[in-house]
């Protein structure tokens, strides 16, 4: 009977010894790249024509908006490349210039986007600016701490558009690839 036991242990031992592991290449982990791409809106500006007409003494509206989304470590240390997309539409009766400047913490201008719009009727102006290896310096995005917007009325402050609810609008969105794992 003990012989049976011996056989059994031989079976177990054989299983242990004969068990195989096909060659695994764990160094492949180094080649694993996790680089998702995220997109979201960043800034929406809406200026009705009546507000433009109410501006007195100046034809310029300008404002510095704090914008920390790009400079947060979780983003700035991981962003690889991406694109900012702007959609500008003018349905007022005036020609306008809209300027967007990206500023760092010290207030230094890093990049400028400029849009010149004729009076209505105008088409929607779409502009895409790429950042990264094949575009503008990605450090512009990484170091942006605020956005300075300047809207200049190149026309008068009396006329009114024939469009319903005339206004100038700026839509913008960001689409960036970030590196989760090297």
């Amino acid at each position: 009977m003990k012989r049976i036991g011996t056989y059994l242990w031989v079976v177990f031992a054989t299983l242990m010894i004969m068990s195989c592991v096909e060659e695994q290449d764990f160094d492949q982990y180094e080649d694993l790249s996790v680089t998702p791409t995220y997109e979201a809106s960043i800034l929406y500006l809406e200026v009705p024509e009546r507000s433009i007409n109410q501006l007195t003494g100046t034809n310029v509206y300008s404002r510095d908006f704090n914008f920390d989304a790009f400079s947060e470590d979780v983003f700035s240390k991981r962003v690889i490349d991406g694109v900012l997309t702007y959609e500008v539409e003018n349905t007022t009766s005036k020609p306008l210039e809209v300027k967007i400047q990206f500023l760092d913490e010290a207030g230094t201008v890093l990049d400028t986007e400029q849009f010149v719009l004729g009076p209505e009727p105008t088409a929607v102006l779409i502009n895409e600016t790429y950042y990264g290896p094949y575009g503008e310096d990605i450090n512009i995005i990484k170091n942006t701490s605020s956005i300075f917007v300047t809207a200049t009325n190149l026309g008068d402050t009396l006329s009114t558009s024939s469009q319903a609810n005339p206004m100038v609008t700026l839509k913008s969105s960001a689409k960036f690839k970030v590196r989760i794992k090297e």
Binding site: S41, P48, S51, F65
Partner: peptide, 20 residues
């Protein structure tokens, strides 16, 4: 959310507000 939204003239009411 649709990003920071600056809609005049309401946005002018508080010149110090931090939209972000």
């Amino acid at each position: 959310i649709e990003g920071m939204e600056i809609i005049l003239p309401d946005a002018l009411s508080d010149p110090n507000q931090d939209f972000w």
